[in-house]
Simulated scan of single mutants.
Amino acid sequence: MVKTIRKGIAAAGLLVMAGTQTVWAALPTPVAPSTAPSAGDWIALIKGYIKDGGLVLGLAIAVLGFLWIAYLGFAKFNEARQGKAEWAEVGVLGIVGAIVLIFASYLLTEAAGII
């Protein structure tokens, strides 16, 4: 019984100490968007973050397109090795895939300039 009371008093003491002690976290400063608005201009700050988010989203879409073309290329290569597809199909997929990726990169570059 005495041990239980001592544990309760110790827990209450730790709770009081934790509640009254101030905690200062060394948080990093947030990175400003690429447009670098003037201090206090919240609307421009939000627009800058939205623009940077759009650019990151476009980059993610380009990466997903590259991975999809690569997956299709490996699948078609495997089919050609097994005799289920012609080797010319692998070449056509490689050429068309490269054209699609170049065109997507061009469109994303133009969109980044417009945004």
Rank of each mutant, 00 (worst) to 15 (best):
R81V: 08
L55C: 05
W87C: 05
K51I: 11
N78V: 07
G91R: 15
A88F: 10
V63K: 13
K84L: 12
L57H: 08
L72Q: 13
I69S: 14
I61W: 05
K47Q: 14
G54D: 10
A62Q: 02
F74H: 08
G58K: 00
G54Q: 12
L55P: 01
I69V: 15
G54H: 07
G58T: 10
V63C: 03
N78E: 03
W42Q: 15
F74D: 09
W68Y: 10
L55G: 14
I46Y: 10
L45R: 08
I95Y: 07
A75I: 10
D52W: 08
G73C: 05
G53E: 05
L55F: 11
F74T: 09
G83D: 00
G58E: 02
W42A: 15
V63T: 14
R81N: 13
G91W: 03
L59P: 04
G53A: 14
G94A: 12
G48A: 06
K76T: 13
W87M: 15
V63P: 04
F74R: 10
E86T: 11
G94D: 04
G58S: 06
A44D: 04
A85M: 04
G94L: 05
E79M: 10
W68N: 14
K51M: 09
K76S: 08
I43S: 13
Y49V: 01
I69D: 12
L93G: 03
E89H: 01
R81C: 09
W87D: 15
G91N: 15
A70Y: 02
I69F: 06
K76Q: 13
I46S: 05
A44K: 05
N78M: 05
W42R: 14
G91Y: 12
G48I: 03
A60Q: 09
L64F: 07
K84Q: 11
G48L: 02
A60H: 04
L57C: 01
E86V: 06
I50L: 15
A44N: 00
L93I: 04
K51G: 12
L93H: 04
W42K: 14
W42V: 15
W87P: 05
I61N: 09
L59Y: 11
A60N: 14
E79F: 00
V63S: 13
G73M: 07
L72D: 07
G58D: 03
R81S: 14
L67G: 12
W87V: 12
L93W: 00
L72V: 13
Y49C: 04
D52N: 12
I50P: 07
F66W: 08
F74I: 06
A75N: 02
L45T: 12
I46E: 15
L72C: 11
E79T: 00
K84T: 12
A88E: 10
A70V: 11
A62P: 03
L55W: 02
A62N: 09
A80V: 05
K47P: 01
A62V: 09
V90C: 01
F77P: 00
A70K: 09
A85L: 06
W68G: 04
L64P: 01
R81F: 07
I95S: 02
G94C: 01
A80R: 03
A60R: 00
G65F: 03
A88M: 04
G91V: 14
G54T: 03
D52Q: 02
F74Y: 11
E89C: 04
L67N: 08
I95G: 08
F77G: 14
W68A: 14
W87A: 08
L72M: 07
K51N: 01
A85G: 04
